[in-house]
Amino acid sequence: MTFEIFMQQLANGISIGSLYALIAIGYTMVYGILRLINFAHGDIFMMASYFMVFSMVNFGLPWYVSMVIVIIATILLGVLVEKTAYKPLRNAPRMSIMISAIGVSFLLENLATYLFTGVPKGFPDIAILTQAISFGNISFSVATLVTPIITLILLYVVQFITNKTKIGMAMRASSIDFETARLMGININRVISTTFVIGSGLAAVGAILWGSKYPSVMPLMGVMPGLKCFIAAVLGGIGNTTGAVLGGFILGMAEIMLVTFLPSLTGYRDAIAFIILIVVLLVKPTGLLGEKVTDKV
């Protein structure tokens, strides 16, 4: 193994890891507040990719306009899902809302298959993101370089919102104790909507960056990233945004390094993610940065 190859793999790992991180933030925030694993998150990510295809390919809009439209449309979709599928179940047992989330996931997948067929569509080429840069023998696209930077900036923004603003304070209060927060006069519905706005917005940004690297859009494209990002969120400590980003990077790096150092095991790449999940659940169920929560029964 030469130094160059190692550096190339490192770049590959950081790039995929930061994409996982971006989507994992959405999982972790919803969990933090609603104690709900939003299984539809991966499919909202998938819909965002389709929105991008439609606005750029079918309507011929420039990428910067499309990006804004896609983010807004995805946020609307996320909030719509919350209002229709989760809000009516606010006082139902947690299991019901989880099943509702799985239902939404299947609904979106089948709706996409019905409307857009199973034939993959090409993700529009955003020249500014897809052009290749090379240093000697190491080459990667601009998207690879930009993704980790965007992820870290967005992490900072999310941290700022949760720690420094009034709505963030309400979010933190709700995540500690839902009922008490409500009694204190916090508008719980607004807090939850805001969470879905942020989560879906990040999924949209993730979809645009993902599509620039892996330009194939199809109805089931959200399933695997959805699962991987869920694992990343659990690994980092679900409910903790910094943890989600850390978990995403570790997961991406672990996958790439498996291929780098044990090339004969490339077929087990997905297995490594699930092995990590099992090990975390066995050894440290709260994840790397998760706080110990005493569950109120």
Binding site: Y214, V259, T266, R269
Partner: peptide, 19 residues
């Protein structure tokens, strides 16, 4: 090299091949 169904990232495999 082998990959799995619905994999989208082949950079690691391809980097090995490139070498």
């Amino acid at each position: 090299s082998e990959f799995q169904v619905n994999d989208t990232d082949f950079n690691a495999i391809l980097t090995n091949i490139k070498a």
